[in-house]
Simulated assay, not measured.
Amino acid sequence: MDPEYYATLQLTNKSDVFSFGVVLLEIVTGQPAILNDPEPTSIIQWTRQRLARGNIEGVVDTSMHGEHDVNGIWKVGDTALKCTAQAAEQRPTMTDVVALLHECLELEAERNHMNAGFNTVGSDGHVNRYSGYDTGMSTNVSESS
């Protein structure tokens, strides 16, 4: 819950931004909003502590198995923490959040595009990997099957 809500008992647009930031952190970390680590700790505090050490992989949900753009995940984490700032005036607008998340999607799309490709088995029994670059040409790299 937005910390200012406790003082005013009024929900605002910035309260929604705060809640959205918590949801983003839950998605990225795979953790609940309140962790027992070993004492009850908010996901915000838990994430801030780990990111302060500079290790995004210590925050990211292990079920992602490294299948993400590190810069994009940093940006999502940073956006979520901005959304959960204590003071409402320090939080971005939802329009700003959408723009930031769109940038994250672009980073992930770039990573997926660079890793795109398909495999075929050649007549010699080797697996051939064809890269999906937009150059109009295919790059053939043979690997043992």
Rank of each mutant, 00 (worst) to 15 (best):
K14I: 05
T84A: 13
T135Q: 02
P38T: 10
S144Q: 11
M137S: 05
V121F: 00
N140K: 11
R53C: 02
L51Y: 01
V59Q: 05
T95K: 15
V98E: 08
N36H: 11
L9F: 05
L25Y: 04
L107N: 09
T120H: 08
P3N: 05
N140W: 07
S42C: 10
V60D: 01
A80K: 13
T79G: 10
I27T: 06
E103P: 01
G77L: 15
L24I: 08
D2Y: 04
H65T: 01
V127P: 00
C83T: 07
T79C: 15
L107T: 08
V17R: 05
F20D: 00
G58A: 10
T12I: 01
W74D: 12
I56W: 06
K75W: 06
N112L: 15
H68G: 00
V17I: 06
R53E: 10
R129K: 09
V70M: 12
Q45E: 09
W46Q: 11
S138L: 08
Y5I: 03
C104G: 08
C83Y: 04
G125A: 06
I56M: 09
V97Q: 13
I27F: 08
A80I: 13
L100K: 13
L81K: 11
A7V: 07
G21H: 01
T95D: 15
A33I: 06
S131M: 04
L9Y: 03
K14E: 11
E39V: 14
E108M: 13
G122M: 11
A116F: 04
G125D: 05
L105V: 13
P38D: 08
T62H: 03
H113V: 04
N128T: 05
W74T: 10
D69T: 07
S15W: 02
E57N: 08
N36V: 15
G122K: 08
L105Y: 12
V22L: 04
G77H: 11
A88I: 09
N13Q: 06
G54D: 02
T84G: 12
T93Q: 11
G54P: 03
E4C: 04
L107I: 10
D37M: 13
R111S: 04
M1F: 02
A33G: 09
V60F: 01
S63R: 01
L51H: 01
P32N: 10
E89N: 14
G117K: 09
L11N: 00
V121G: 01
T84E: 09
N140L: 12
H113K: 12
G125Y: 00
N36Y: 07
L107E: 02
G21Y: 01
